[in-house]
């Protein structure tokens, strides 16, 4: 029986039969439909997914005319910090603009949390001004809400990660509510300064990493910022496929945030005033690439259909069907890219 080269969710190579790939595609798709209570993919879409996965060429690409727009999180962290290339942020931005042909870029700092930026935000504003003088592509400023940074020992608030295991639920919830206000205030403060210095947009990245409080703080910050700067472009990129209920009862305009899946998250972000939504679907490293990709595309399609704003799907290490390895094989990455744009109908990555 013919076997096709493909990958597992951790990036390792595997040869699978047509029957096994189709089985995994079906199971992954159904898992997403079941968890998100969203429509299943059509037979045609499943067939296209199968063809993308089993395409004999190493890397694949979209059909001409189907290209999408790419935005970045952790933009200026990747080359000078993670890759260790001795270049400054200005050179990084121009490398992305002129050599890598990125559509947009993000200026960010190594401690990628809004709270940490307070002490040097004016230096960040200067860097933004310089970047704007020299670059053509839109430059976001971005960081994470990182609500956990407001808890002891890093911040003033009691640590809910310690309170919850002691079953001190009301205390843990009160602590999160207090942290929400601190985080929202910091995000508004920093975003205002970098926007006044010429940023093309603000990116809130890995939103919800500390749970529903993290998400609420971001929504509140976005709402305040949009009242202050109605034209400010704002991207909200999520941390996971559903909002972790660290508090469990927080709401935004009547919607409970905990447990929301991408097609529901985007609606809340729209209400707050976001202009681009960064949808996240987690990769399960123990399952096959086929299983993960079908699951991703099912969630993406439902999210894009629900959205009135552009959806840029996170397709980096361990998300969007991309295997959980920091050197993801191009065969898998390009297939995830194509399937998300062409079947999921995403507006970008």
């Amino acid at each position: 029986m013919e076997k096709y080269f493909t990958r597992l969710g951790d990036g390792s190579a595997v040869w699978m039969t047509e029957e096994d790939i189709r089985w995994d595609l079906e199971e992954g798709m159904k898992d997403a439909a079941d968890r998100g209570r969203i429509p299943e993919l059509t037979d045609d879409e499943m067939q296209r997914l199968f063809e993308i996965i089993t395409h004999p060429e190493k890397t694949v690409s979209c059909e001409r005319g189907n290209e999408g727009v790419v935005t970045f999180d952790a933009g200026t962290l990747k080359l000078p910090v993670r890759a260790g290339i001795p270049m400054d942020r200005m050179a990084t931005i121009l490398t992305h603009e002129r050599a890598l042909c990125s559509d947009t870029m993000e200026l960010c700092t190594t401690d990628y949390s809004y709270k940490s930026i307070k002490n040097f935000v004016h230096e960040e504003a200067m860097s933004m001004e310089l970047a704007q003088l020299n670059s053509i592509i839109p430059i976001f400023y971005g960081a994470m809400p990182n609500l956990g940074q407001y808890t002891k020992p890093d911040g003033p608030i009691d640590n809910w990660s310690e309170l919850l295991p002691l079953a001190k639920i009301p205390e843990a919830r009160a602590a999160q509510e207090e942290a929400v206000e601190h985080a929202a205030r910091d995000m508004v403060y920093i975003s205002s300064i970098v926007y006044d210095s010429g940023a093309d947009g603000i990116n809130f990245d890995t939103v919800g990493a500390s749970g529903d409080g993290d998400f609420l703080a971001t929504l509140k910050a976005v709402e305040t910022l949009k009242n202050k700067y109605p034209d400010m472009p704002v991207e909200i990129g999520m941390a996971g496929e559903f909002v972790l209920g660290m508090h469990g009862q927080l709401t935004y305009e009547g919607d409970r945030l905990a447990g929301l899946y991408p097609h529901q998250q985007v609606k809340v972000c729209e209400k707050a005033g976001a202009t681009i939504f960064g949808c996240v679907i987690n990769t399960n490293s123990s399952m096959s690439f086929a299983w993960n990709l079908a699951r991703t595309v099912t969630f993406v399609k439902a999210c894009v259909e629900a959205a009135n704003i552009p959806v840029h799907v996170n397709a980096g290490m361990g998300v969007g069907g991309v295997p959980l390895t920091n050197t993801s094989p191009t065969d898998a990455t390009s297939r995830a890219s194509k399937a998300i744009i062409e079947i999921g109908k995403a507006d970008g990555l």
């Binding site: 042909c101 559509d103 290490m317 990555l349």
Partner: peptide
């Protein structure tokens, strides 16, 4: 990763009209 996405499905930044389409999504 950025290069792979750009080659697979990206618009191409200022080589093409990627930055311009991005601006319309953003603004």
């Amino acid at each position: 990763m950025a290069v792979t996405h750009e080659v697979a499905t990206g618009m191409g930044g200022i080589r093409t009209a990627g930055d311009l389409v991005a601006r319309m999504q953003m603004t």
